[in-house]
Structures are given as structure tokens and as C-alpha cells.
């Protein structure tokens, strides 16, 4: 019976495991990175003393965080819809893992090479919105509800310029295949699409921040307004799932930006995987940097930025791209 299972399924299964490990590892690194970078920006050392002295610079901090989250009591608030309440964090994290399957981490490091990779990522990242609003709604908390409402309008609005910008790149390359898109760019920075599509890069980056609910667009969980927004009522692993998902989507967004605009695994001298990782982490660092620097925008401003600026600009960018291609 085992030989009946096609090799591709085995690859996918092993790949999924690898991806989960990758997501977990990334989360660990990012938690540490976020704390340390925040500390650097705040001019303080950040986590410093966790565990015995053989682990300097608080390097065990993410593990301590994880342990704390795992050890916490799972708590379902009274009146909450318990099934949906606990389904939501899972819905949030699962699609994030699926997204990693089609990402080409290197010239030979891709689990599934499909022609519709880009669409797959766009489709599965869209599910996160649903998870967040389910969480907000099911927790029977007014802050959660407002957070969910904010998340929907934000997620739906920013998906539009995002798709338009992706379309411009797709029109340039003529494919949805992530590997081909990355492969189409040269090894040197001036051969990357960021030089052909600078506006698209900026729009995509802003939209990615908004879609991943990162500051300055972290309105669904704006803690000074809505305590914690949609995850107000979550404790322990429920919260950890959202937390993991947020980091996972950050990584996905960075991967996509790296592939679409920064040449993916392309780069001189070093092997592709390292280039890809370096690009992704530079983007992640920029995201963290932005988070600790800017105040939060207001909700109507957030939507105004999208509808009045990003969408027209994205359309304009698309038209210019089309014109250039047609010529």
C-alpha cells in the first residue's frame, strides 16, 4: 500500500514537516530579533539574563516565552462560542504553513513547483482575515468584535492594491510560477524587478505591512484603543497561534517581496538559499524597525491611504506596465 502513495505526496508530507520546523524556527529567531532590535532602538539591552550564564544575551528568551505560553491555562470566556473560539487560531496558523510549500527558497529548495504558486499564496493568506474575525466574533467581547470589524475592512481594502501590484509583475513575467519569476531576474541587483517596478515595490511593502497587521497598521489589535483587539480573550496557546501566524505571515510576505522584487534566490557568489534568507531577513528587520519607530495611523486614515492613494497608484502602475509591455 505504501508504494501506492505517489512520491509527490511523500515529498509534500516531508516538506510540510520541514516547513513547520522552519516556521517554528523562524518564530524563535524573530521573537529574539524583535526584542533585541526593539531594545536597540529603545537604547536598552533587551532581554539579557535568561537561564544559566552559558547562554549570554538572553538567547533563551524565546524559549522562555514559548514555555510560558504553553504552560498557560487555556481559558474560554463565558458566552463565547467555544468551537469557533478555538477553531480560529488553528485557521489562522494552518494556511500560513501551506504558503511555504510553494516558495522557492533556493534553486533546488522548493517543495512543490507549481504554475500557480503566486495565486496559491494570495489565496491562502486571504484566509487569515477570516480567522481573525472569527476569533474576534467568537470571543464575545466587544473589543474583539471591533477588532474583527477593523480587520475585515483593512484586510479586504489592502488586498486590492496588493493584487493589482502583483498583476503588474505577473504581466511583466507572464507567469504565476514563483520559481520562474525569481529565475527570470538576474544575479545582480540592477537586474531585479525593484528597478523596473519601484512603485510596485513600495505599494506591495505597505500592503504587506497592512495585511500582516504590523505597526503602523496594527489596528485590529491596537492595544491602546482596543486592549488587544481580536485576541483580547486568548491566553496561552490560542494567543501563541495568532502570534506564530503573524510571524509566519511576515515571513511569507517578505519571501514574496524578495521573490517578486529582489530576485529571490538570485545573487552573486553565494549559493541561492543564503541570498534568499538574507533578503528575507533584511525585509523582516525593516518591518521590525518600522514597528518600533512609527505611531499607529487612525482607522479612517488607514482606509484613505488605501482607497485614495494606493489603489489609484497601483492601477496607474498597472497601466504603465501594460503600456510598456505593449510597446
Amino acid at each position: 500500500m505504501i508504494e501506492a502513495i505517489p512520491t509527490q505526496f511523500i515529498i509534500i508530507f516531508v516538506g510540510l514537516l520541514a516547513v513547520m520546523a522552519f516556521v517554528g524556527l523562524n518564530a524563535i529567531v524573530l521573537v529574539y530579533l524583535e526584542r533585541k532590535v526593539a531594545g536597540f532602538i529603545h537604547r536598552r539591552p533587551g532581554p539579557y539574563e535568561v537561564g544559566p550564564p552559558c547562554f549570554p544575551h538572553g538567547i533563551l528568551q524565546p524559549f522562555a516565552d514559548g514555555l510560558k505560553l504553553v504552560g498557560k491555562q487555556l481559558f474560554t470566556p463565558r458566552g463565547a462560542d467555544s468551537i469557533l473560539f478555538w477553531l480560529a487560531p488553528m485557521i489562522s496558523i494552518a494556511p500560513a504553513i501551506v504558503c511555504f510549500i510553494v516558495i522557492p527558497f533556493g534553486p533546488h529548495l522548493q517543495i512543490v513547483n507549481t504554475n500557480v504558486g503566486l495565486v496559491l499564496i494570495l489565496a491562502f493568506t486571504g484566509i487569515n482575515v477570516l480567522a481573525l474575525c472569527l476569533a474576534g466574533w467568537a470571543s464575545q467581547n466587544k473589543y474583539g468584535l471591533i477588532g474583527a470589524a477593523r480587520d475585515i475592512s483593512q484586510g479586504v481594502a489592502y488586498e486590492i492594491p496588493l493584487l493589482l501590484v502583483v498583476l503588474s509583475v505577473v504581466f511583466m513575467t507572464g507567469t504565476f510560477n514563483l520559481f520562474d519569476i525569481a529565475d527570470g531576474q538576474g544575479a545582480w541587483p540592477w537586474q531585479w524587478y525593484i528597478f523596473y517596478q519601484p512603485l510596485a515595490f513600495i505599494i506591495f511593502f505597505i500592503c504587506a505591512l497592512a495585511e500582516t497587521n504590523r505597526n503602523p497598521f496594527d489596528l485590529p489589535e491596537a492595544e491602546s484603543e482596543l486592549t488587544a483587539g481580536f485576541h483580547t480573550e486568548y491566553s496561552g496557546m490560542g494567543f501563541a497561534c495568532f502570534f506564530l501566524a503573524e510571524y509566519a505571515y511576515m515571513v511569507v510576505a517578505s519571501c514574496i517581496i524578495a521573490i517578486l522584487f529582489l530576485g529571490g534566490f538570485q545573487g552573486p557568489v553565494l549559493p541561492g538559499g543564503w541570498w534568499f534568507l538574507a533578503k528575507v531577513y533584511v525585509l523582516l528587520l525593516i518591518m521590525i524597525w518600522i514597528r518600533w519607530t512609527f505611531p499607529r495611523v487612525r482607522f479612517d486614515q488607514l482606509l484613505n491611504i488605501c482607497w485614495k492613494w494606493l489603489i489609484p497608484l497601483a492601477v496607474l502602475n498597472l497601466l504603465i506596465t501594460l503600456a510598456v509591455i505593449a510597446i
Binding site: T114, N115, V116, V119, L120, L122, A123, F124, G126, I127, V129, L130, C133, L134, W137, L145, A148, A149, I152, S153, G155, V156, E159, F176
Partner: peptide
């Protein structure tokens, strides 16, 4: 037809049902 399948997820799950959700709220 993976393209159509993904479109189904992108449009119906990602957009339409979210809008329905909004309407319910």
C-alpha cells in the same frame, strides 16, 4: 484545475465569505 481551485479560495473564502461575515456583524 488548480487555478480555478485557488480562485475559489481567493474569491469565495477570502473575499465573499468575509463580506458575508461583515454583513452578519
Amino acid at each position: 484545475a488548480p487555478f480555478i481551485a485557488l480562485m475559489q479560495i481567493l474569491i469565495y473564502v477570502g473575499a465573499v465569505s468575509v463580506l458575508i461575515f461583515f454583513a452578519i456583524m
